[in-house]
């Protein structure tokens, strides 16, 4: 067992973990943060994407011990006091999900993309999300949702009210 100290969605946890424990299992099974799903065994699907020290990673390919001393942000850490994050709202409003299994990973990958590129083209959105598979939507509405959220995140709320 190895002692780890990890900050997840703003809360610090200390736990003894087996080295083989995957970060995604730590989040789900130990911390109860089941907002991050597991969709594959091969690091292909991206459903488990979280931010580790601010950058996107597939949490099924990281060991919990590797997150020791680091910060993890999951989809559960995005909304503040019941208010949805602009990406969450845009996914909802643009019908960017059907079963919703891929959505947490899509949103975390999109957040990472918008951190580096606040105004991506549709092509850049598609490339930014290339590690995330969706079996339902056909991606069109996902791209639309990210575009909408990007616009919203660039413009402060008051300004948006005036212009729209």
């Amino acid at each position: 067992m190895t002692r780890v100290r990890v900050e997840v969605d703003g809360v610090t946890y200390e736990d003894d973990v087996e080295p083989r424990l995957l970060l995604v299992h730590y989040l789900r099974d130990r911390l109860g943060k089941v907002g991050t799903p597991i969709g594959c065994d091969t690091t292909n699907c991206g459903a488990c994407t979280v931010l580790l020290d601010g950058v996107s990673v597939k949490s099924c390919s990281v060991l919990a011990v590797q997150a020791d001393g680091r910060q993890v942000t999951t989809v559960e850490g995005l909304g503040i006091d019941g208010t949805l994050h602009p990406l969450q709202r845009a996914f909802h409003e643009e019908h960017a999900l059907q079963c919703g299994f891929c959505t947490p990973g899509m949103i975390m990958a999109a957040l990472d993309l918008l951190r580096e590129n606040a105004a991506p083209s549709d092509e850049e959105i598609r490339e930014g999300l290339e590690g995330n598979l969706c079996r339902c939507t056909g991606y069109q509405n996902i791209v639309r949702a990210v575009r909408r959220a990007a616009r919203e995140m660039r413009t402060p709320a008051q300004e948006r009210e005036v212009t729209s």
Binding site: T49, V57, K58, S61, E130, G131, N132
Partner: peptide
């Protein structure tokens, strides 16, 4: 190579 999340690690 791969995708952004894989390229981060």
């Amino acid at each position: 190579v791969a995708d952004p999340a894989v390229r981060h690690r």
